[in-house]
Design a protein around this nucleic acid. Structure first.
Lengths: 341, 341
DNA sequence: TAGAAGGTGGAAAGCGCTTTCCGCCGTCGA
DNA sequence: TCGACGGCGGAAAGCGCTTTCCACCTTCTA
């Protein structure tokens, strides 16, 4: 009888049957003691023997078998474009905190911004019978993806998203529009009239919303498209300043690109904010460490991720929308427009 | 007969039996066609009927059932202290890239630096029958944790770690010692004699190694302990400068703390590097955006994560050690010691 | 004192797959 | 012409759990 951990056969895990045998009870009893969801009690004496045996043997339940028998798993999925992007990392961390309160494990699907992979991962999350999936990347609004989302929901999983998404699913809606607007108002109040905007890839919902908020105040900014990375922002800033030398302010649609824009201005020897003001969006931790510190819009990303996970896990009917604030944070990178007194 | 996706009963997923019935073949045949690992072929005509039915019904295999039957799962675990920390995010991203090449999903366990949680997650990863687990956090060298690692390996899972770890498991070893040494040499070459070091929590292997490398050159630096965060670094820098005003250089054991140290120096109005030089470790993306840009030690984190995942997934025997380079990157934050000409 | 009611342990039937057998059929060699 | 053999589809036995159902043993009540 394998009693101590040193005598267990390596390579084969301990089963509940072994625990039951070691404790001298039936399989059913052992199951009731250790995972007692049958809603039944077991006599104290037996229960103790079982837990003792389980501890002794280092037993942990075979999760796949459990999922099969209970037809519900203990994993949830989080779909992100790129976990190395601090924006997604913060959301994921918030979501994970809540998941852990519910004793769930988090399967992170890193799509590398590939729509095909996005679908694929969603299908695999369905295969895993993940209880829920959080679409953290502002997904491309493609037909096949929407179908895959529907299939996931059909098979009994819950879906929530950050930002705008189709019908029926829960969403946490950061006030992207309001954030864009408040940055624009801030720049206008400082006297800026020639303004450049560095946007991200078209088709991303967040991009459209932030931009719409901004243009609701500044009707016709000069626009350059970049790919939501620091390098993209740097290149776009160069382009913008070359083609429109009169620009006195640049609004980058996220902080990463704003960091790139600051780098570009440094390279050009144009002082910030004396000659050109720069603003970002997200308020990533890096914003305070830039020079000058970045004026931006604060999204409480970790809390947003947590909130989305809460929506996924309470058992209310779906289709809800929870707003999340976007708050202007003024730091040193914006100032009065050159020539305005 | 539920033929189209619109007539499927919601809430209950499609099973292989349903696909088989729809295709007019047996369960076994359907299994062979769709997941054909039995090493057997099926006649063309039948195979086509089966795949057609599967597509039609949007069938995806029940992964837990598959894991149970095959007694091997398609998930791997990655254990990190905090996914929101760019250090771990980069490692995780690298690991995920390789996992995806192998068609594996990644379960990310965020331990929030809690040793208890670390153990707990490892047990749950074992419960999931994760094929392998990557210990990305330089784990606390605690006895119970080591036991849990052994239990995981015993039950047939592979284990790899970044940085120093017990026996038998694969490890990727960034040259922490060498990195610490090279920073020290750099500072000494610049004439610094009074040097402060901001270390992390004792018990972290990386901390010990980086520090050891450093002190192999600078025997007795002034040491302040912080908790590996920007705020910790900032506070520690203040302490260091208050207690040892003669310090002309600060080495923070990671870039996050170095960013904090730079902030502290800004607050004190001490110019960097004219009065005080600052160096970090890791070369996170933020390093180039600090002012002045940070002198640091480059670790190719993403590649390190990828390499570790490769070790986990090839089928070579374990216990290997793969070194990873640590390369000095000199930027603007270090300069000649004040008073040295 | 007997019968009902309530509590507790165990046997067994799945959960959705994989995979080993088994048996059928057609082909080929002697 | 007949037996051996190879190829391929299907039946069925698990994989490790959960949970229903049944049997048994105590109480408690009339």
């Amino acid at each position: 009888m394998p009693r101590t951990s040193s005598t267990r056969t390596p390579g084969s895990a301990v089963t509940l049957q072994q625990v039951a045998t070691a404790a001298g009870v039936s399989l059913a009893t052992a199951s009731r003691v250790l995972h007692g969801s049958g809603g039944r009690r077991v006599a104290e004496a037996l229960a103790e023997r079982v837990t003792a045996a389980a501890t002794e043997l280092r037993y942990v339940a075979h999760a796949p078998a459990q999922s099969l028998a209970r037809s519900r798993s203990t994993v949830v999925g989080v779909l992100v474009h790129d976990i190395a992007d601090p924006y997604f990392a913060a959301i994921a961390a918030g979501a994970m905190g809540v998941a852990r309160e519910h004793d769930l494990m988090v399967l992170v699907a890193n799509t590398f911004r590939d729509p095909g992979l996005e679908r694929d991962y969603l299908a695999r999350l369905r295969a895993q019978r993940a209880r829920a999936v959080l679409l953290a990347g502002s997904a491309f609004v493609s037909e096949p993806f929407a179908e895959e989302v529907a299939a996931f929901a059909d098979s009994g999983g819950r879906v929530a998203a950050i930002g705008a998404h189709g019908t029926g699913i829960d969403t946490v809606q950061p006030d992207q529009y309001g954030g864009g607007r408040v940055i624009a108002e801030h720049l206008v109040a400082l006297g800026h009239r020639e303004v450049g905007v560095i946007t991200g890839p078209a088709g991303l919902a967040t991009v459209a919303q932030r931009l719409a908020g901004f243009t609701s105040v500044v009707a016709r900014p000069h626009v350059a498209v970049a790919d939501f990375t620091r390098e993209g922002g740097r290149a776009a800033a160069h382009t913008l300043l070359r083609e429109h030398p009169a620009i006195t302010a640049i609004f980058a649609l996220n902080d990463l690109m704003a960091a790139g824009a600051l780098a570009a201005l440094r390279e050009l020897g144009r002082p910030v904010p004396e000659q050109v003001s720069v603003a970002g969006f997200d308020d990533l931790p890096v914003a305070t460490d830039l020079t000058p510190a970045l004026t931006t819009v604060r999204l409480q990303l970790s809390e947003i991720g947590a909130q989305a996970m809460r929506l996924l896990l309470d058992d209310e009917p779906g289709g809800r929308t929870v707003p999340a604030a976007a708050e202007l944070v003024v730091r040193g990178s914006t100032g009065r427009a050159a020539g305005v007194h």
